[in-house]
Simulated assay, not measured.
Amino acid sequence: MKKFAIPALASALALAACGSPAEVDDTTADTEAVSAEATDTGTIVDVASGNEDFSTLVTAVTTAGLGNTLAGDGPFTVFAPTNAAFAKVPEETLNGLMTPEMKDDLVGLLTYHVVPGETNAAALVQAINDNDGSYELGTVNGGKLTATLDGENVILTDAAGGTATVTATDVEASNGVIHVIDTVVMPG
């Protein structure tokens, strides 16, 4: 699995927590620089908006009215389909989901890609291994995704029996983590 290195909020917190008050005064500039770097990471929505490979996802999130929710405190784990993943969805279906009449279905689809809490790649692989090779994730929309391993790749199986491969992991955001997937998962 690929891993993107983006400055982590945890690094800023660890640095700030290391020193006594006198040391913090001496390192204020360094701590502020790390904190500013972590803040630059932005929310899940900010990170996705800053990457052109997620433009369809960002459009869908905006259309569904989920921007504020996914920019909230979280934490969230988002399995984010790329534009190429959305291109696998029949154009007629995708266009239909983007209409006001289908907003509830779009919200259901998008929230099926979101898991409450922050689960990094190492924790997910460990959970799969600890549970005899299969781990069930509860999504925000109430559905389930099943995570398994195929070699070193995490595979998600959706309610419809479709699969998506996690192609990049641990893209950090201030309110959670993003794992990139190559196929849109379907809630049923």
Rank of each mutant, 00 (worst) to 15 (best):
E118R: 15
E118A: 15
E118H: 11
E118T: 14
T119G: 12
T119F: 13
N120K: 15
N120V: 13
N120Q: 14
N120Y: 14
N120I: 10
N120S: 09
A122Q: 12
A122F: 05
A123Y: 08
A123N: 15
A123Q: 14
A123K: 13
L124S: 10
L124D: 10
V125P: 04
V125H: 05
V125F: 02
Q126W: 04
Q126K: 15
Q126R: 13
A127N: 00
A127L: 02
I128D: 04
N129V: 15
D130I: 02
N131M: 05
D132A: 14
G133H: 03
G133A: 02
S134P: 04
Y135A: 12
Y135S: 11
E136C: 08
L137P: 02
L137G: 00
G138V: 06
G138C: 00
G138M: 03
T139K: 07
V140L: 15
V140M: 13
N141F: 04
G142F: 14
G142V: 14
G142L: 14
G143T: 07
G143Y: 11
G143A: 11
G143W: 08
K144A: 07
K144W: 01
L145I: 10
L145K: 07
L145D: 05
T146W: 00
A147V: 00
A147Y: 01
A147E: 02
L149A: 11
L149Q: 14
D150R: 13
D150M: 12
D150F: 08
G151S: 03
G151R: 06
G151N: 05
G151M: 05
E152A: 13
E152C: 06
I155N: 08
L156N: 09
L156K: 11
T157V: 14
D158A: 11
D158F: 08
A159Q: 07
A159L: 07
A159M: 09
A159E: 09
A160F: 02
A160W: 02
G161V: 01
G161W: 03
G162K: 00
G162V: 01
T163I: 06
A164S: 07
A164H: 04
T165A: 08
V166W: 03
V166P: 02
T167A: 06
T167K: 04
T167G: 02
A168V: 01
A168F: 00
T169Q: 07
T169W: 06
D170E: 08
D170M: 07
V171N: 11
V171C: 12
E172T: 10
A173P: 09
N175D: 10
